[in-house]
């Protein structure tokens, strides 16, 4: 095997410096909070694992985590197939392709709070266009019916983030050489066979990125439920991050919030690692074969 020049890793140092201030130092602080009862930097008490015992036996927190998982899985199941479907029917070249790309990207460039406010007004059953109509047809009211609240947040997330999947998949599709399609046409392959045996294997890498990004973002979803439902009705949309913010900023209970954040962090780490491993399994097999 060709030996790689690992000196390029030094070029990563500036990023590490930036990440140190935006992620590592806060993470260290959170880890310190998690094992103390902090009133202020001068008066604090070491409490050991107390917060972890409280967190792992708190039904509110456990159900919030379950809700987040459920939401992420639903979001992935809708957004990935929908994104692939839209990317496949988008125009391939010319001004139509540019127009379609711009149209698709619009939700991505709108600030998150604005998206929340827009959907909040749009969905209100008294003054919102969509909400009023749905209310007349199906008795839709996201402020009182937990199912409607959940469905609304899921819809907003799909509207907001499917474009990201579309853009990634579209870029992936454009990078497949025409020769593959010509070979498939010579063999008389059906449209589904082309998708299954040509496009899907070539898309594996972009889908890996799409699934990872979408899982993490939907698992940590905060802005949309905060702006639209505030975690309600009841606690139907109180996702893990909403509850975390309530504990950390609302109750200012930084010790519990610190322990909670560390557990949250490990769950994200494990899920990302599992996705990454499963989706790169084939590459790893190939690496071993060449040895």
């Amino acid at each position: 095997m060709k030996t790689r020049n690992n000196k390029a890793w030094f070029l990563v140092l500036p990023v590490i410096l930036v990440v140190a201030f935006t992620a590592l130092l806060p993470l260290m602080t959170v880890a310190n909070y998690a094992i103390q009862d902090v009133f202020n930097p001068q008066s604090r008490i070491f409490v050991g694992m107390k917060w972890f015992y409280q967190i792992t036996n708190d039904q509110l927190i456990i159900s919030a985590f379950k809700r987040s998982f459920q939401f992420s899985i639903q979001a992935l199941l809708i957004q990935i197939p929908l994104g692939i479907a839209i990317a496949r029917i988008m125009p391939k070249s010319g001004w139509r392709a540019s127009a379609a790309l711009v149209a698709v990207s619009v939700p991505l460039i709108i600030p998150w709070n604005v998206i929340g406010s827009t959907w909040l007004i749009f969905s209100r059953s008294d003054i919102g266009l969509g909400g009023f109509l749905l209310n007349k047809l199906f008795n839709f009211d996201f402020t009182s019916d937990p199912k409607d609240g959940w469905g609304l947040i899921l819809t907003v997330d799909v509207w907001h983030w499917t474009p990201l999947v579309v853009l990634l998949v579209y870029a992936g599709l454009r990078s497949i050489p025409q020769a593959y399609y010509q070979a498939a046409a010579i063999d008389g392959a059906s449209s589904f066979a082309i998708f299954r045996y040509v496009e899907l294997p070539k898309l594996r890498r972009v889908l890996l990125i799409a699934v990872l990004l979408r899982f993490m973002d939907s698992f940590m979803i905060y802005t949309e439920p905060f702006v639209i439902t505030g975690g309600g009705p009841g606690d139907a949309t109180t996702f893990a991050s909403i509850l975390l913010t309530n504990i950390a900023v609302g109750q200012f209970d930084v010790g519990r919030a610190g322990a909670y954040s560390l557990i949250f962090f490990i769950v994200i780490q494990i899920m990302s690692f599992l996705f990454y491993t499963v989706l790169t399994l084939q590459d790893r097999e190939e690496v071993t074969k060449t040895k």
Binding site: Y53, N57, I263, I266, Q269, F273, R284, E285
Partner: peptide, 28 residues
């Protein structure tokens, strides 16, 4: 899965962390 020692260090590290959370949650 095919791993080198760095992969295994990472896997064992997060496994340890996750095991400790489970231990704290269920054994008390």
């Amino acid at each position: 899965i095919t791993t080198d020692r760095g992969d295994r260090v990472y896997i064992s590290y997060i496994s340890f962390a996750f095991f400790m959370i489970c231990w704290i949650a269920f054994v008390e």
